[in-house]
Amino acid sequence: MTHVLRPLEVSDLEAKPLALPSAEPLSGEIIVRSKVEFTDKDRTVISGIWESDPGVSRWEFTTRGEIIHLLQGVMIVHEDDGEPVELTAGSAAYFPIGWKGVWTVVEPVRKFYVVYK
């Protein structure tokens, strides 16, 4: 069955502070909003829409990986021992299992994501 994602309003998303185990906020409280649009029956693949207010957070993909397509905003991802990379609307990025580093959301972002285990 084909599932079409329609544009979502902010009111369609669940808001909460970013917290472990997803990521560790480094710059104080960061509000994120999200909605899961798809999950398979054993939850090895999950996808949806995620938004974040500006802030700095540490991400460690130890048990899962993530592929994102940035729909709006600006963020800088800096893998440990790597170079910072700026992502802007239209950019896509892949965070394989084992990726560790810091995300700096410069302007509010909205992304489509696929998490896999």
Rank of each mutant, 00 (worst) to 15 (best):
L8F: 06
F61W: 11
V74A: 11
D80W: 08
S91N: 13
L20E: 13
L13F: 11
V56W: 04
V106F: 01
L70E: 09
G55H: 02
V77T: 12
E86K: 14
Y113Q: 03
A92D: 03
H78D: 05
P25M: 06
Y94W: 15
V105Q: 09
D53C: 05
F38V: 02
E66L: 07
K41P: 06
R33I: 08
V85F: 03
V32H: 01
K117N: 14
L20Y: 04
E66M: 04
F112G: 12
H69C: 10
V45R: 10
V56G: 07
E9H: 13
A93N: 12
A92N: 08
V109H: 07
L20F: 07
D12N: 01
S27K: 01
D12C: 00
E107T: 13
I67R: 10
T44W: 00
K117A: 13
R64V: 14
A93E: 10
V32G: 09
H69L: 13
P96F: 04
I30F: 00
D42V: 03
A23H: 07
T104L: 06
T62F: 13
P108V: 00
P7G: 06
V114A: 07
S57H: 06
K41G: 05
L20P: 02
T63K: 15
S22H: 09
G28F: 03
R110P: 01
S91K: 05
H69G: 05
